[in-house]
Design a protein around this nucleic acid. Sequence first.
DNA 1: GTGCCTCGAGTTCC
DNA 2: CTCGAGGCAC
Length: 747
Amino acid sequence: MADEDLQGLDEPGLRAEWQRLADRVAAANLAYHQADAPDISDADYDALKRRLAAIEARLPDLAALGPSAQIGAPPSETFAKVRHAQRMLSLENAFTGEDVADFIARVRGFLNLAEAAPLVLTAEPKIDGLSLSLRYEAGRLVLAATRGDGETGENVTANARTIADIPQTLAGAPAVLEVRGEVYMGHADFAALNERQTAAGDKTFANPRNAAAGSLRQLDAAVTAARPLRFFAYSWGEMSTPLGPTQTAAVARLAELGFKVNPLMRRCEGLEALLAAWREIEQGRATLGYDIDGVVYKVDDLALQDRLGFRSTTPRWAIAHKFPAELAWTRLLGIDIQVGRTGALSPVARLQPVTVGGVVVSNATLHNEDYIAGRDAKGSPIRDGKDIRVGDWVQVYRAGDVIPKVADVDLAQRPPEAVAFTFPRLCPECGSEAVREEGDAVRRCTGGLICPAQAIEQLRHFVSRGAFDIEGLGVKQIEMFFADDQLPVKEPADIFTLAARDAASLTRLRNRDGFGEKSAANLFQAIEDRRTIPFARLLFGLGIRHMGEVAAQDVARHFATWAALVESLDHARPAALAHRAADAAEDAERMAAAAEARRPRIAEARRAAMTAAQVTPAAQAAWDDLVGTDGVGPVLALSLSDSFANPQERGAIDRLMAHLTVLPPEARAKVSPVAGKTVVFTGTLERMTRAEAKARAEAMGAKVAGSVSARTDLVVAGPGAGSKAREAEKLGIEILDEDAWLRLIGA
DNA sequence: GTGCCTCGAGTTCC
DNA sequence: CTCGAGGCAC
């Protein structure tokens, strides 16, 4: 479809044609994203878009209305999401030989390996690309997914099929096999690609990794096919038959199956051998022909890997030993203060743009007040503190090759007129006092929801992925609605009245720039869909300090219903106040040791503690229950209590709740006989270390506690068990020895 | 009281 | 990704 025939059309004709094309593209998008079943070929789709663009070039007012300009559709929304059968984890990082030594010591300690027992690890280059999971069923590639957040990635199967290093079929593979590895681009291919891009007038890529990422995430697989992507396999996810007894054997098997594996991988015994491998790989870095950013060490024996297991986001049996970060010097042009969701004032360096590790950096974090000043609140110098001033030459690096940081300052080049930075005492956004709690590194705005910066950040958090995750309501839209006169959104409840307010208003959302009939309707539908919300997401979305995703899940599971939580919090309030008062009294007493002059404050704190001490047993019980909840300590409990007792915040919560139905938390899947049970280990364990026993129990869904109580389900007692075993007997709790326990969990 | 380990909060660039 | 700090075991 060329656009020559457009020449014959008059303006109304063009507009009609534009509408027809826009509808067609929108329908194709929908089919592609939601059903993952494209109803037209990629080439036809491209042609449609080109024709649309040709019309928009002549009638620019259309451009803002069409599918090409639709807001709320960043590239990440353009691939279907897929859940990984097995989570794709990241690796813990080591930066020094000492870190590596610690890692080995931890592994040995966890496994309780004898001093003389050998521990073999593999060392392989860490490719700087993007990880990809390939699922083969009956030997055929059925799914390729990016890592995403580890739980859920993007379906890029069509694109992965165009990569020559990725076999479409495997001979003699297990019935189900997920192969994991890295997609990357070689230096020569990268340079050639950028030359082609320049010649074609397209934008060039900053580095091979960006080029690889950009190439893999093309909606048009034909574009990906034209890009010289390569793939190394180094790991696996779900599989119906093990690939081998060791990492080395499994990777060799992957090579047999037809995958490219890295030729530099080798087995090493002991710290020195690992570090030697690291040095050698680093020395060969420049001649490899592709980017690497470190060396990965893995415990070779897969049975040991299995015993070591996983922490929440990383395996215990592997670590990435990074190469030193690239550094660059530049001028510090200014220091801005940003206000975060919790009111934290964070200093950001505005820099003379400089290339660091292949990316142009113009902003960098300055951590906090003390870091800039180079000394702490009391005036004593701090470790790594710099006394950084506007106008200084500063050294920048990208931590983990991502986050730009100011690492050093060149005092010799300091301009004579440079003055020390004065950290604001008032919030730059709302003018409220910004205070620093004793012992805290950050200064916080006290304005609460009065502060527009905090209010916006709270809303951004509310719609964020782990919370309400409303499609079409991203950061940009939140900022727009917050400042909007016609359809203001100042607090979460306002989101749920948007549609009704829009229907009643004269200037409808669908007629606005950046919105159309379709996108407005989609947004309202997405909001409707979230009127029913899982308990934990709601709790997380409220943005209460110290209440993260994990804590929210724990609390939701503990209380089961929203009403139970609210009732309990209301009951516990006096006890919460008593707890704070007692803390304050303690603080004041500590201060008194230094300054007798604080007498009046102590007396006041004591009086407050006395008043607050009039706590009913019911209140105390509610507080104890709250603080006894898994993952909840006094700090989170107080924060939660404060939020619900603060009239402003409670008002916003109640207004929000009027629009919502809360889904009770899902019961933990019963995957093992001990799932959901509380287990206590006591006495000496002979077959494994305590850490290992705990990790394994938790991996089976059990909760491991330190002391026996009425809530304990099971006690595992080894030789030398004393009071805990007696306590268990008294309470009539089942007691197992270590062998019986291992049989129970099927080990 | 001390020392892990994990979570929470804030960070940049594409 | 890193840092600080909360939670919890020893």
